[in-house]
Amino acid sequence: MKTFGYTIQNDRQIDFDAADKKLYRYVAEKEPDINLCIFCGTCTATCSAAEFKNMSFRKISLFLRRGLTENLKREIESCMFCGKCTLVCPRGINTRNIIFNIRKGIEEYEF
């Protein structure tokens, strides 16, 4: 094998065909409200952690759907379970319970 002074760049495209939806299905079963998210970002705007960390419930909701578990794990660590996001959600989603179940699911499936 030769070295060329560069390496082949990774594809940025989300391959949704290959997405692992196991964790999403696990969470959706425990808290079906996850389906109701309209990605408005009200949750993120009010989140105490989001002001300082990479923490966005809206993104978490997307990572979960797209099967991007690595991003999800990183993002979710900053949650302090204060429940402010649940308070503001216009669709009445129990966001707090979703984060709780994501954590449980990650442990269960040893992601």
Binding site: R12, Q13, I14, F16, D17, L62, R66
Partner: peptide
């Protein structure tokens, strides 16, 4: 996927 800011492929 404009909310992710990434191109997405789906069959």
């Amino acid at each position: 996927d404009t909310l992710m800011g990434k191109p997405l492929k789906l069959t």
